[in-house]
């Protein structure tokens, strides 16, 4: 436990959790990725990040966030060609350095990488059904440990998003349409939705700084996702909503001037 407290860098835990999800998917869920894709993608994300470190004279600790982005891509994005994965990796990392406003990312890098790759290549897709309900328990365990280990304050965005979505789905599907509750609950067994809620929308570097605005912001994401999922039958709706709503963050930050979030680390403060 002492060691855990000493490490104090939540990004290491994030890598452990996402990494174990990836290993589970690779070896138990037979995902359409292989070790070659995994190694090429890690090579590309760390390589791109390394170039940026050299060029912008950043701390090497930022390589951790590149690895997290790589894991995010591997967990969510699927493609036929390995070139598509390389492109996605480059877009993801480059977006962190290119698309910025007052030192904050505008887009969540993984979200930006996924959406842009899908739109640009026509070779990539999101498989919402790749997890299955049996892997739900593993995901929940991972997410709970994640909740325990990092400051809950940061995760409030994800919790607000998920509970708003849950209320909307229950009201519409159960109370209005009349489907039984297991119909509603089945929607929340989607691994992609849980990953989105706890590892993507919670990203403190791309959400509004003020906690109240952040809560409203995430419930708007939930509302829009709900509309797209229920009335336009878009299963990967939250990813698209986050992509299109992200450019609003700088405006929301102008309303309130809470200082932007910095990852806490024992040795040094990184900037990316």
């Amino acid at each position: 436990m002492n060691l855990i407290l000493k490490l104090k860098n939540p990004r290491i835990f994030q890598i452990i959790f996402l990494g174990s999800f990836l290993i589970f998917g690779l070896f138990f869920l037979e995902w359409k990725i292989n070790l070659l894709v995994v190694s090429v993608l890690f090579f590309t994300v760390t390589g791109t990040q390394f170039l940026a470190i050299k060029k912008l004279k950043l701390s090497y600790a930022s390589l951790l966030s590149a690895i997290i982005s790589g894991l995010g891509l591997l967990l969510l994005l699927r493609a036929n060609s390995i070139k598509t994965y390389i492109l996605a990796a480059i877009i993801t990392i480059a977006s962190k350095f290119i698309i910025k406003h007052k030192g904050k990312h505008i887009f969540n890098p993984v979200n930006f990488g996924i959406i842009l790759t899908i739109v640009l290549t026509g070779d990539a897709w999101i498989s919402p059904g790749q997890w299955g309900s049996s892997s739900l328990y593993i995901l929940i365990i991972g997410i709970f440990s994640w909740l325990v280990l990092i400051e809950v304050k940061q995760l409030i965005t994800g919790i607000v998003f998920l509970s708003t979505l849950f209320i909307l789905e229950t009201v519409y599907l159960n109370l209005y349409l009349g489907w039984p509750m297991d119909f509603v609950l089945h929607k929340f067994t989607s691994g992609s939705l849980l990953l989105f809620s706890f590892f993507m929308i919670t990203d403190p570097r791309t959400t509004p700084n003020n906690s109240k605005i952040r809560a409203i912001w995430s419930s708007i994401v939930a509302l829009l996702s709900f509309c797209l999922m229920e009335f336009h039958y878009l299963s990967s709706a939250p990813f698209w909503v986050l992509f299109f709503i992200s450019p609003l963050t700088p405006f929301l930050n102008n309303i309130n001037s809470t200082p932007s979030f910095q990852w806490k680390s024992n040795n040094q403060k990184s900037t990316q």
Binding site: A79, W125, F183
Partner: peptide
Amino acid sequence: YPQDLAFIETKNKE
């Protein structure tokens, strides 16, 4: 199978 079957068309050409 609590829900009806919803499908998506992926780009998977394998």
